[in-house]
Amino acid sequence: MRGKQVIKLTVNGEPYEVEVEPHMTLLEVLRDKLNLTGTKGSCGVGECGTCTVLVDGKPFLSCLTLAITVRDKNILTIEGLARDKKLHILQKAFLEHGAVQCGFCTPAMLLTAKALLDENPNPTREEIREYISGVLCRCTGYVKIIEAIMSAAEEIRRRGSEYE
């Protein structure tokens, strides 16, 4: 087919070479080409934030990001958040605080929260509210999500590590 290109990406620390068409989104590449279905799609128009992944540490809407624009970048998806079978402290906090219900926004929420804590290890409630405002959740009412992020931030500061 016309216009196919091979791009290099690093996803969750693993190098990939993927053949993509110019119109393909990062979301399609992750889910369909790399079989990383932890990244979810929903609105397709950049409104709900469900498809958020981290590109070089910053939250990106993978449904609006053309795959060819992130060549040679470092991408973190939810599958790469746990390390050596150990959950990230944010993942543990989400479970322990009841911040997960249906779980469909959870990958995006967790990655957005990680980007926040990488930038700002000691955020206020207001700063958390603002930072996660791009990710919709229909189940929880956000209260426990904010509590979980507050608690994880404290735990990470205390340990000096994102993992136990």
Binding site: T37, I78, L95, G98, V100
Partner: peptide, 25 residues
């Protein structure tokens, strides 16, 4: 007593391993 989700019900949702209908292949 407050109980976090059972491991089998909660952990796959935070690791991206939970298979939803849209993920069936």
């Amino acid at each position: 007593k407050p109980h976090p989700p059972l491991k089998m019900e909660g952990v796959p949702k935070v690791t991206g391993e939970a298979i939803y209908t849209v993920d069936v292949k």
